[in-house]
Design a protein around this nucleic acid. Sequence first.
DNA 1: ACTATATAGTTAGAAGGCTAATTAAAAAGA
DNA 2: TCTTTTTAATTAGCCTTCTAACTATATAGT
Lengths: 154, 154
Amino acid sequence: MKENPADQVKMPDDVIYHFFNELGIMEQLVTTQLERILPDGLTKAQFGVLNHMVRLGRRESPAELASAFQVSRPSMTNTVQKLEAKGLVEIVPHETDGRSKIVLITNAGVAMREKALKALMPQFAQIGKALGQEIFEKAVPLLQAVRVYLDENR
Amino acid sequence: MKENPADQVKMPDDVIYHFFNELGIMEQLVTTQLERILPDGLTKAQFGVLNHMVRLGRRESPAELASAFQVSRPSMTNTVQKLEAKGLVEIVPHETDGRSKIVLITNAGVAMREKALKALMPQFAQIGKALGQEIFEKAVPLLQAVRVYLDENR
DNA sequence: ACTATATAGTTAGAAGGCTAATTAAAAAGA
DNA sequence: TCTTTTTAATTAGCCTTCTAACTATATAGT
């Protein structure tokens, strides 16, 4: 009876590794396809920030944004600077805390977010039609549970 | 009755967007934490290739590896060159196809993969213990279904 | 009040990813 | 057979992300 080469050293918790592997491969696909659809060279990171700000409609600091997206502060500095260079956000000093800044979305930023949404909509609709919404409704809570755990135990 | 700011422009297929969003945030967390655990500055991409080659025990070309991980060929060229520089793989010409190359894992590569696995094992066990394997067993087929769709429709 | 610690943001440097373009070899077609 | 198209790999240039280190401000502790 031939053994699989993998048996030499067993994979620990194979399902979990498989899960993370599947995650990484899908994220690769999603990011690439998303950025191909987004208008005006908008990246996933940039769209994420614009969308976040419109949806939550709040004044947030770069540090708060970094935390929301689970990226480092230098990464978020970079992202909001790119958005500022495109005129999609404004970055102003915090009124009372001299260390902090506040990121504000501009009218152009809101318009760009709407343009991006319009570009994305058909693709999302197609995926929803092909796979059904149920699969996503089932998956989201599972993903959230894992994310929350990783978030709390790092 | 106050409306949520998001209502100005509705998110198309909110569950699907939420799914992709959750995916991106978790992938960020996973990659960062994984690379903090991996030994000798091994990256997720590098470990992925080593692990893939041991598990499948096959001679594969850079193009096949790129396809397996859903990255571009230039990205895989970069990764295997980094592995070659560390002495973890060998890259030899294909016997019959003058365009192709074959990536072979070295003894050092196998040893490094085992060292990495040993480093990863406790973390995976802890996650499994905290969340249970079931959540991953439920999630993997869902992720696969979405991945296969994206893969086939790009 | 003064010192020490923590927090916000940035800069520098490295890694991985992408697309576009280049080179070389194989396969297909006229 | 000769030309055209496809495929494999690489190079160049850009973007995002990371960690480490630095500056400046705020908070805590003595």
